[in-house]
């Protein structure tokens, strides 16, 4: 679904706006600033092998913990690996888990929430009771437990995110579907004999999904920070794969002398998060207008 249809939904949801006449509300400039930042990160991740000056896994123990120099712009880590190259390659796993870790739960939650809200009855009951139990746990505590059960690695982290973070989306969509379901045009569709599945996907769903899309950017930030935190704790991405949170953890023992080892990866995380937050805040403001 494109961003424009979100606007259409938002416009349709605010009747006063429709009465005042359709006036194109311009996207706030910070959305574009944020998009540029995020695009830069995506490009770095995609072209990592071309951009990185060194192999991120290549060790050079003799040259360990070197200060920044022309040869190694951000110095080397405790095993003599080039920090800049590791940061560049780390963007691959961090961005992948960030985007998929937000998108997969959103998809699962949206489907389950839409079905629960539309079907009602025992289907609704079962889905909502499961979501009650999942929601009783702090999200990331349950993710720690689930990653423990599934074993470390990108796949199990994504499975854990999906199985746990769908709940918030399901509740959001269910509420929206319940609202839209009672509107006149759905009753009209039903009266004209459309099958429930078709009504749900063609009529109810497109009009309920806008809110979800508004939350997506901040959830990508959440998933990225979540992965960084898991790896910082030693429970996420395992060595030697470069990952931002794990790099911050690896640099902490050397904070007195090589302070940049921990601080620079953190700045990289903040930059990515800030780009997405600018997009999210901007879109939120835009849909409110």
């Amino acid at each position: 679904m494109s961003v424009e249809s979100t606007a259409a939904i938002a416009a349709a949801a605010t009747p006063s706006h429709a009465i005042a006449g359709v006036e194109r509300v311009r996207m706030p400039r910070r959305v574009w600033v944020g998009a540029l930042i995020v695009a830069a990160y995506v490009l770095v991740a995609v072209f990592a092998p071309l951009i990185a000056p060194y192999d991120p896994l290549e060790q050079d123990i003799v040259n360990a913990l070197a200060s920044p120099s022309w040869a190694h712009w951000l110095g080397t880590d405790e095993l003599g690996r080039d920090v800049l190259s590791r940061l560049i390659f780390a963007s691959r796993v961090d961005l992948l888990v960030g985007f998929l870790g937000a998108a997969l739960p959103a998809i699962l939650g949206t489907v389950l929430g839409a079905v629960a809200g539309f079907r009602g009855g025992w289907v609704d009951g079962v889905i909502m009771r499961i979501s009650d139990v999942v929601q009783a746990f702090p999200t990331y505590i349950l993710i720690i437990a689930l990653v423990f059960v599934l074993g470390p690695g990108v796949t199990s982290i994504l499975v854990a995110f999906t199985l746990i973070a769908w709940v918030a989306y399901a509740r959001l969509i269910r509420t929206e579907v319940l609202r839209v379901r009672s509107l006149d045009y759905v009753a009209a569709a039903r009266a004209s004999g459309l099958r429930p599945g078709r009504i749900l996907w063609r009529h109810v769903f497109p009009n309920s999904v806008g809110q979800t899309l508004v939350y997506l950017p901040s959830d990508i930030v959440g998933a990225t920070l979540g992965l960084a935190a898991l790896s910082f704790l030693g429970l996420g991405i395992q060595a030697p794969t470069p990952e931002w949170g794990a790099m911050i953890a690896a640099g902490q023992p050397y904070i007195r002398e090589q302070w940049w080892l921990s601080t620079v990866p953190g700045l990289v995380v903040v930059g990515f998060g800030l780009g997405l937050s600018l997009i999210g805040e901007g879109i939120e403001e835009w849909t409110r207008k």
Binding site: A228, A229, I255, R256, T263, P265, V269, G271, L274
Partner: peptide, 22 residues
């Protein structure tokens, strides 16, 4: 606030160690 929300808390902790504790 926008910047602060994007900061990993463990990183903030390390920054505080670096700038205050040490």
């Amino acid at each position: 606030g926008l910047v602060a929300l994007a900061m990993p808390s463990f990183w903030v902790g390390i920054i505080l160690i670096l700038t205050i504790a040490l």
